[in-house]
Design a protein around this nucleic acid. Structure first.
Ligand SMILES: [Mn+2]
Ligand SMILES: [Mn+2]
Ligand SMILES: [Mn+2]
Ligand SMILES: [Mn+2]
Lengths: 217, 217
DNA sequence: TAATTTTGTTAGGCATGCTTAACTTTAATC
DNA sequence: GATTAAAGTTAAGCATGCCTAACAAAATTA
């Protein structure tokens, strides 16, 4: 059986495993989900017994095809909800993630398909993340450039921001850093890896931590 | 803490306690929720410790003011979701209850207020049940007549149907028995308490069990 | 009123998902 | 390569919410 907890583990695993392309350790998952390493080790065993992950003690976890399918399905529900809540119900950019984090586990296939249809089968959520379609396929998307690896003097468009921290999203909204906004990289400071960008004709400095959440095209 | 399970108990308690005006026993709740009597007795103790119900062993349970407030809030979320899913997302009359049964527990005050606003602060859900407003107040509503207590020869309007059984709702849809539909009571059969009604110019017989789910004005 | 049936409660157990503390394996450092 | 530090796992225990079986109270019937 897939439970709320299992869905959250699988989804987290997917974003590490398939997006960041790293071998995922139990403690990385633990940190993402704010649970103990012990909880994650236990869950790794359970998911492994159900054939949803491959897990070798001390050697990391990776999704099986079956596990990936579930993860993509949870992501689909999450991202469609986010977009729906913003577009239809006027929730704000920083509010939708936390709501979707719950709704994603209580949404039937029938319901999510209706939402998908209502939104006319969108390909990206409000933070720029791709939405898997009904079959679990992701839209084609150009490889994005992390803000921190952008070049001084160059101009880019904001293509995706991490949605994990609502305070951060609120801050982005406040300074006008939203999706598709043009930004120019003024200066990269090597001593603290912070970065100065031009945005709406004014310059603003972002810490390394903050800048990590922004991706460009 | 209010959990999903507790919300379901309180909501069930409310509909028995305040709607049917009976002293509610643990086994009635157990039956409604499809759990054992034992589970309900335990839960009664927990809810009592939290001041959400008054519970005397062997003497039944009733909601306190605090418990009633929570129950009304769950009902509000449930009924607004039902209406929203029908009106906006084109789910059918028989689908919305089961979806709402889950969504009602994962919906922030902020989100439900947006839904309320989107629907323009409706007073009744798709099955004719009243929707508590943000303050927990129910709309004024005329006292409804159970179909089984209607008079032979008289004509009524369907004002509410129970939404608990989706198969039943599907059947109602099929025979054209929907909200606000006019029906005439042709005959009440005393040997099995079934009832024959006229609906869309044809007559149809409803068993006692089925007729219990229909209320008139 | 006493016996019996029905209703409701308690006891003991189990599954899930978490915790902290103790332990083991792996990686880093000398 | 041995020692130490870091990362990861296991053990023991707790909370929630459910179950069945045994028991107790209340209602029914004789
Ligand atoms: Mn999100
Ligand atoms: Mn979630
Ligand atoms: Mn309902
Ligand atoms: Mn529910």
């Amino acid at each position: 059986m897939s439970t709320i907890s299992k869905e959250n583990y699988l989804k987290t695993l997917y974003t590490k495993d398939k997006i960041e392309n790293v071998v995922v350790t139990t403690s990385q998952i633990a940190e993402s989900l704010n649970v103990s390493n012990a909880a994650t080790s236990e869950m790794a065993k359970k998911l492994s017994n159900q054939g949803l992950v491959n897990y070798k003690k001390y050697k990391g976890i990776e999704l099986t095809n079956r596990g990936e399918k579930i993860a993509l399905n949870v992501l689909r529900r999450h991202r469609l909800w986010e977009l729906f809540l913003m577009e239809v119900l006027n929730l704000t950019w920083d509010e939708v993630h936390d709501e979707a984090e719950l709704l994603e586990h209580q949404t039937s296939e029938n319901l999510i398909d209706k939402i998908d249809e209502y939104l006319n089968f969108p390909e990206f959520d409000p933070h720029g993340s791709p939405i898997p379609n009904k079959k679990g396929k992701l839209p084609l998307m150009p490889k994005l450039k992390p803000l921190l690896s952008g070049e001084e003097g160059a101009t880019y468009k904001v293509a995706r921001v991490s949605d994990k921290n609502s305070e951060l999203i609120k801050y982005f909204t406040k300074i006008g850093l939203t999706l598709n906004k043009k930004i120019k990289i003024i200066e990269k400071l090597t001593f603290d890896n912070s970065i100065v960008i031009e945005l709406n004709n004014s310059s603003i400095s972002l810490s390394e931590k903050t800048a990590q959440s922004v991706f460009l095209k």
